[in-house]
Design a protein around this nucleic acid. Structure first.
Length: 888
DNA sequence: TTTCTCACG
DNA sequence: ACGTACGTGAGAAAC
């Protein structure tokens, strides 16, 4: 028998919106309500197997109900814009699913559904109505069931006549009378005052209908009687409003509503646009012909991929196919690429895939493959080739010629996407399913290298997807004008970073240990003093125990709390220092303990025994702004601000006798970038004359001459400059300067008064971000800001500050990356032995032989300053010494 | 695994 | 009224 599902589109989409956490696609489009709706829709289709479906929507603001009652649905909150924008999406999605929808000005979805359910029933068909609105129960009959949503929209509870009887003790039509007496605040239907569900049900059980209740008020007494008499008209009106109109002129034929399954070719692009990855995966299941369709499709897909398990005998065959290879996967495991264990190599041609277990590469017969890998003139396409390069390097295998790295491209296309895996990208691009590595290998303690067959098949699926992803990414990069950024900057940089990492930085282990001994002695002394003063021993590293000592035992005032208890961070401790002598000791302990654990012990662990160096790993695909990050160890946060910590830098030394460490850093690069992109004349003027920018800011903000700027004014100006770069807020500045918010707000206002171009830029960039959903750097690097239009103040404010900061920080990152590529080229072309070792956001560190020192002291800052031409000059300062400490 | 703290630009 | 400065990684404790 035919089965029709009628869905109240408005009811479901509202419920889905409020039940789901915020969700946006990378374009900033809100999609949470559509997601919830779609989820429910797929479940319904699967469970109910309908032959016909129609989704009804409300159309327009007024309906026939407003004619009799102006206040109908009055007092409702305006639909949030995050929801409004999802209505068109929802309709588009329904069309892509081949599901009919209908709306008619003057009528509500309820009425359309009431009409169609009546028609269907009259022609002997089964109907299921899906809504969140209890009013709908009035249409229930033997053939028409109503499913009410529960828990948002994730579950539904079906009601037939029996269920209504059980729940309310009423016949379906009496639901109208129930509403007439109770009213409905959400629709602004008055009902009778003082009568809620309990009383209304009692009355209806006794009299049966609104009319009968009103006819028998003399049998009642008290306040209830009075209200019923006085509000009889309200009750009649309310009943009328609650009655679903079942004669709507619906122009939809039975055939229009027919549903014959979701057509993949139409639905997939839509789901891709919305970035509903999990639903995309589920779709292949619902579209399947029952049984374990997902697994079947998976198996079919896998069987379709032709993978050859290569052994020593078949290696010559691979050699003959190398010219056809268009993609590769070098699989390894372990977090630190320098210590990664290689699992195998997959070489993909358009027709077939070759899996080589890693051990095979060590045999003589693999010579052709090895020289292919090492040939920089053979362009390679692969996934995380930077990591592969390092892993191979420590096995004595050379890798060169990376042309397109899918992971790096994915990062550029959306630097905030956390799933950069091939599996995730396959979903994003609507490609056949690729299982996640985790699902094949297990994770954490369960990680296990699978047998070669399984591994080979898995890699082949990744390789197959990779070949398809490359041209799609190329098109995307072209579309967003990021072609140059990728192929001329990030890809070349990737190789340069790998070279720096392989080179490593020499560390004087003995000096570092010696430093550890000194810290140890100081720490022991401090710990003893602290225990003495506290009158007991405790774990100083435990914030919980420390809090108990400071606030419970010693009774110091609580300045700030964390989610879990007392805050004891340095900011709080500074404020507590005047109250108790113990606090100063704790601050000193904290400082030394940090140096000891992170920088002495931590660094010692990272020195590679074979080289006596630390080999950091620069991550090129994590920072949302385009910066690099550094791991194992992090060499971008070696202490410098305080002298005790700065001493750590003495252990970073040249790797060859008599060489020097040379460091060059950009001066005020972010403010110079701001001067360029904002076009602010005052700021540009200041840099053209190479003025001290904080002093200049102080002069303009405080309206004084150069000689009148005192240290305090300069300090404030400096904080304001930082604030500007970060996307200023009065609260943030007030915290930083320890002043009131009002005072901070005045500083900011004075700053914008003095630098109006900056104000204009900040206003514009936020406006642009709200319009486009993303911001860009000078080199077209982009960052999406899906929360820029959020109604939540915090989310929105955060996105606004990010919109102001990212073009500045990101452009600075672009510039130093450019400088690195140019520097690498310059070293090569001049035939220099000097080596680039580190990048610390605005600084480059080299090791330099004595005979090249003079030249490098000119070449490095020159190259950095000329990396790109801005409307203000760039400035780099250089220094050198026997170690990193001396290069200051 | 999450939270707090702190090192850097 | 809302409550945060932007971007990272690492160690230790607590869950």
């Amino acid at each position: 028998m035919d089965k029709l599902i009628l869905i109240d589109g408005n009811s479901i989409i509202y419920r889905a919106f409020f039940a789901m956490p915020p969700l946006t696609n990378s374009g900033g489009l809100h999609t949470n309500a559509v997601y919830g709706f779609t989820n429910m829709l797929l479940r319904l289709i699967q469970e109910e197997q309908p032959t016909h479906i129609l989704v009804a929507f409300d159309a327009g603001k007024t309906t026939f109900r407003h004619e009799g009652y102006q206040e109908y649905k009055g007092g409702r909150e305006k639909t949030p814009p995050e929801l409004s924008e999802q209505f068109p999406l929802m309709r588009e999605l329904l069309e892509s699913f081949g599901i009919a929808w209908f709306e008619l000005p003057g009528y509500e979805a309820d009425d359309i559904i009431g009409t169609l359910s009546k028609q269907a029933e009259d022609s002997d068909r089964e109907v299921l109505v899906v809504t969140g609105d209890k009013d709908m129960l009035q249409v229930v009959t033997g053939r028409v069931k109503v499913a009410l949503t529960r828990k948002g929209v994730s579950e539904v509870e079906p009601y037939g006549p029996k269920e209504i009887e059980e729940r309310y003790g009423l016949k379906p039509l009496q639901i109208i009378d129930l509403k007439g007496l109770m009213g409905d605040t959400s629709d602004n239907i008055p009902g009778v005052p003082g009568i809620g569900e309990k009383t209304a049900l009692k009355l209806l059980h006794q009299f049966g209908s609104v009319e009968e209740v009103l006819a028998h008020t003399d049998e009642l007494k008290g306040k209830m009687k009075e209200n019923l008499v006085n509000h009889a008209e309200d009750a009649r009106l309310s009943k009328q409003l609650a009655t679903i109109f079942r004669e709507v002129p619906v122009e939809r034929s039975w055939e229009d509503m027919q549903f014959s399954g979701i057509e993949e070719d139409k639905a997939v692009p839509m789901l891709r646009k919305l970035e509903f990855k999990s639903l995309l995966e589920r779709l292949s299941f619902t579209a399947g012909a029952g049984g374990n369709a997902a697994a079947d499709a998976d198996a079919a897909q896998a069987a379709d991929i032709n993978v050859t398990m290569v052994d020593a005998d078949t290696l010559p065959e691979v050699s003959g196919q190398l010219a056809e290879v268009e993609g590769m996967i070098i699989e390894s495991y372990g977090d630190n690429p320098h210590h990664a264990t290689l699992m195998g190599l997959l070489l993909s041609t358009p027709k077939r895939h070759f899996f080589l277990p890693f051990e095979l590469l060590k045999r003589e017969e693999a010579a052709d493959v090895l020289s292919w890998l090492a040939d920089e003139n053979i362009p390679k396409r692969g996934y995380d080739l930077h990591r592969a390069d390092l892993a191979l390097f420590w096995q004595g295998i050379t890798f060169a010629g990376a042309e397109h790295d899918v992971q790096l491209a994915a990062y550029l296309l959306d630097p905030t996407e956390n799933d950069q895996t091939i599996s995730g990208l396959a979903v994003k691009y609507g490609l056949p399913h690729v299982p996640a590595d985790e699902d094949v290998y297990g994770k954490g303690a369960k990680f296990k290298v699978p047998d070669p067959e399984t591994l080979g098949r898995h890699l082949a699926r990744k390789g197959d997807a990779l070949l398809r992803i490359v041209p799609l990414q190329r098109a995307d990069l072209e579309k967003y004008e990021m072609h140059g950024l990728f192929y001329d900057l990030e890809m070349p940089l990737s190789r340069i970073l790998a070279d720096m990492e392989k080179q490593g930085v020499a560390v004087n282990r003995e000096d570092l240990k010696e430093l550890g001994v000194e810290f140890e002695a100081q720490i022991n002394k401090l710990v003893a003093q602290i225990y003495e003063i506290a009158g007991q021993e405790f774990n100083l590293n435990s914030t919980k125990q420390l809090g108990e000592i400071l606030f419970d035992k010693l009774g110091l005032p609580v300045i700030k709390k964390t989610k879990t208890g007392y805050s004891t961070d340095a900011e709080v401790l500074e404020k507590l220092a005047p109250y108790h002598e113990i606090v100063q000791f704790i601050l000193e302990y904290r400082q030394l303990a940090k140096l000891q654990s992170t920088y002495v012990e931590g660094l010692l662990k990272e020195i590679m025994p074979q080289t006596g160096k630390v080999h950091t790993y620069f991550r090129q695909t994590v920072a949302a702004t385009g910066r690099l990050s550094s791991q194992y160890p992090n060499l971008q946060n070696i202490p410098i601000r305080l002298e005790e910590g700065r001493k750590i830098r003495k252990v970073f030394v040249p790797s060859e006798e008599g060489w020097f460490i040379l460091a060059a850093d950009y001066s005020q690069i972010e403010l110079r970038v701001l001067a360029h992109i904002s076009g602010d004349e005052g700021l540009q003027e200041a840099f053209l004359h190479d003025m001290d920018i904080h002093t200049k800011t102080a002069m303009d903000v405080f309206g004084v001459g150069p000689d009148e700027v005192d240290a305090n004014m300069r300090r404030s100006a400096k904080a304001v400059n930082f604030g500007i770069v970060y996307g200023i807020s009065d609260y943030g500045l007030s915290q930083n300067l320890n002043i009131t918010r009002k005072e901070a707000a005045r500083f900011i206002e004075q700053y914008f008064e003095a630098f109006q171009g900056v104000r204009r830029y900040m206003d514009e960039i936020v406006k642009d971000a709200k319009r486009d959903g993303y911001v860009k750097t000078l080199l077209e690097r982009r960052r999406y800001l899906p929360e820029i239009n959020a109604s939540n103040f915090n989310l929105r404010s955060f996105a606004e500050r990010t919109a102001m900061n990212t073009p500045i920080q990101g452009t600075a990152a672009d510039i130093i990356k450019l400088a690195m590529v140019k520097m690498d080229k310059a070293l090569y072309e001049h035939g220099l032995k000097s080596r680039m070792l580190l990048q610390v956001h605005d600084e480059l560190v080299f090791e330099v032989p004595p005979e090249e020192l003079d030249m490098m002291k000119k070449l490095v800052p020159e190259t950095m300053e000329n990396a790109i031409k801005l409307s203000v000059p760039l400035k780099a300062e250089v220094s050198s010494g026997d170690n990193w400490y001396e290069a200051k």
